[in-house]
């Protein structure tokens, strides 16, 4: 072996399933290193998202009712649910791709990889719909951010008891039943603080789902690269390990969403009452 091909370069072999880079002792060592490496990488990813979940939990704890209110009003549970289904299905197709690769059924590998990519693109499509709605409503944090709490807005325009129905708050509704009159005046600046809280909520929403979306896109890119390399019979993807690694990563991306969806979309105001008795 020459010095030039020493570090990290693969060694060609007649049997691609036995090829390994020269700094390893044997093929098995290389495979195991990849797997341990991937899992370690995923641990760092968990800590990455973990920090964001921590920040989110802190703010949910500070304004429990309000954040879930914002979530309920502005996040589309149905679209989120559809996305959950899409991503779970993509995990299934990814698993099938890995299994096909292990069994060396190349045609099925292509099929399931493309299916996974298609599902991932569907997921991103739905996300695009959600994001663009928020963009149009100026709910993207930053200089253009503009938020008026639903209740406050209605109050400024609608009179009397109707206020109550759009307000959505049981406390106020209760008082309305007792015929209490509310003076009708424009609510100057009343939305400021809730706008700030909404901005924090949407900040965390965009950072968390955005980071997740970036992971989805990276996964798609990796799969596309593998498909192209398979097409050109590159020895680097001659066996199932790259696909298995991608599969591990893809399942992780899926799992992150499984935590994101309930945390962000299914935040229910009553949870607060449930927790505080």
């Amino acid at each position: 072996m020459s010095v030039e091909t020493l570090h990290g370069e693969p060694v060609q072999s007649d049997d691609p399933h036995q090829a390994f880079a020269v700094h390893y002792k044997e093929r098995k060592q290389q495979d195991e290193s990849y797997i341990v490496g991937m899992w370690t990488f995923l641990v760092t990813e968990i800590m990455f998202f973990g920090a964001l979940f921590l920040a989110y939990i802190v703010f949910r704890n500070i304004w429990p009712g309000e954040l879930s209110e914002i979530s309920r009003e502005h996040l589309n549970v149905k679209l989120g649910f559809i996305n959950t289904l899409i991503l779970l299905t993509s995990s299934l197709t990814m698993a099938m791709a890995v299994q096909s690769a292990q069994r060396k059924i190349e045609g099925r590998v292509y099929f399931f990889m493309f299916a996974t990519i298609a599902l991932a693109l569907c997921f991103m499509g739905v996300k695009f719909v959600e994001y663009s709605k928020k963009y149009n409503e100026n709910h993207v944090p930053g200089p253009l951010f503009h938020y008026v709490a639903e209740g406050a807005e209605t109050k400024a325009t609608v009179a009397g008891v109707e206020v109550v129905k759009t307000e959505g708050s049981t406390e106020v509704a209760h008082e309305a039943e007792h015929g209490r009159k509310f003076s009708l005046e424009p609510v100057k600046g009343s939305a400021t603080s809730s706008a700030q809280h909404a901005e924090i909520f949407f900040s965390l929403y965009f950072i968390m789902t955005g980071l997740h979306g970036i992971h989805v896109i990276l996964g798609v890119l990796v799969m596309l690269i593998i498909i192209v390399m398979m097409w050109f019979k590159s020895p680097l993807v001659a066996d199932f390990m790259p696909i298995e690694m991608t599969g591990l990563y893809w399942h992780f991306v899926d799992i992150v969403w499984i935590f994101l969806y309930p945390a962000l979309y299914l935040a229910h105001p009553d949870l607060q009452k449930f927790l505080h008795g």
């Binding site: 920040a55 703010f59 500070i62 304004w63 944090p141 930053g142 200089p143 603080s193 700030q196 809280h197 901005e199 924090i200 900040s203 965390l204």
Partner: peptide
Amino acid sequence: LHLGIFNPNNG
């Protein structure tokens, strides 16, 4: 972007 996560004036 002045998000406010760590800024007390924004909550």
